[in-house]
């Protein structure tokens, strides 16, 4: 029993230690940021951006997200605990907007502004949403594709899915831009590989088989692009591949020339703009409905630039 008491005592002391750290900051503006994940490199980059803004605007933030993007209820628990802390504002990227509505309404009643980020919240409660303009980003991919294949010929798209917002917007952004600006380029097929490397590679090989004159493939996310690269390599064909996002395998393929280049979102910018928007909302500034957090095209030549390197992850 004594041993137990001792252990409990040391546990409470440890907790007290944590809290003294926080006590000093109690009068600061506190903005919890609740994301869709926290251990992936992408979310860590969002976190880094949020922390940067916190230092700049002298506010205190915490960054939390469930372990997988399926744990909707755990994210709600996080939101509920964040509300209990009576924060000044909340940054939130909903895993399932509908499930979060009751809690968001509570925040609204308590006059806590919500800033959506990444895929945001499908509701009019958030004051603004900081996200990548996926259509514009994919349009840039289309321009780069046109440039590399000489403005004409056959291309194909390997999408990561046909239901999510990012999947649909990246595909449509690419297709529309080609139709409007590069009418001589013909899209022969759009296939979906679920972002799976292997599946996307099989699709790429089949596409090359079916369309011997194919000049290029746009892979709409990391797995799709890597799959396209693998497929082209296995089929021993040299085509122009434009990818999306980063990751070590994709970066390696860009370095060895399998993939021409890729579009990257700006996760650091997403985090930064989220906290910045929250601060602005608290000051009563008017905010646009959507804040574009920007995107970049990168290839072998500019991958090492500090501006680009900062938003790429392994």
């Amino acid at each position: 029993m004594n041993k137990f008491k001792l252990l409990m005592l040391s546990a409470s002391l440890a907790l007290a230690g944590f809290s003294t750290q926080l006590q000093a900051a109690d009068d600061e503006i506190y903005i919890p940021v609740i994301s869709k994940g926290f251990q992936h490199q992408f979310w860590q980059a969002v976190k880094a951006g949020a922390e940067k803004a916190a230092t700049e605007y002298k506010v205190k933030i915490t960054f939390e997200g469930p372990e997988t993007e399926q744990q909707v209820d755990k994210q709600l628990d996080m939101l509920s605990a964040a509300l209990a802390k009576k924060p000044a504002a909340i940054g939130f990227a909903a895993l399932d907007s509908k499930a979060a509505i009751p809690l968001l309404k509570k925040a609204q009643t308590a006059n806590i502004p919500i800033v959506g980020f990444d895929s945001g919240v499908d509701s009019d409660i958030p004051v603004t949403t900081a996200q990548t303009d996926s259509k514009a980003a994919a349009a840039l991919a289309a321009d780069k594709m046109a440039e590399k294949i000489g403005g004409e010929g056959e291309v194909a798209v390997i999408g990561h899915d046909q239901t999510s917002t990012t999947g649909v917007d990246r595909r449509d952004g690419f297709l529309n831009q080609l139709k409007e600006k590069h009418p001589k380029i013909k899209v022969v097929d759009v296939q979906y590989g679920g972002g799976d490397h292997l599946k996307s590679a099989e699709i790429a090989k089949t596409l090359l088989q079916a369309h011997p004159n194919l000049k290029g493939i746009f892979g709409t996310n990391e797995g799709s692009a890597i799959g396209a690269g693998k497929g082209a390599k296995e089929a021993k064909k040299s085509i122009v591949i434009i990818g999306f996002d980063s990751g070590k395998a994709q970066k390696d393929m860009i370095n060895d020339g399998t993939i021409a280049g890729a579009i990257t979102q700006n996760p650091v910018g997403i985090g930064f703009k989220t906290v910045e928007a929250a601060v602005k909302a608290l000051k009563g500034e008017k905010l646009p409905k959507v804040i574009d957090t920007g995107f970049f095209y990168y290839d072998k030549t500019n991958m090492a630039n500090p501006e680009i390197a900062a938003v790429l992850y392994d």
Binding site: G65, A81, K85
Partner: peptide, 27 residues
């Protein structure tokens, strides 16, 4: 919930939860 309310970093929440489980079974 308590660790969250105290704004303990998520990584440390895991560490502390793990320790508590071991501690509980040990006692």
């Amino acid at each position: 919930n308590g660790l969250r309310i105290m704004s303990v970093a998520q990584e440390w929440q895991m560490v502390l939860t793990g320790l508590i489980i071991i501690l509980a079974v040990y006692t």
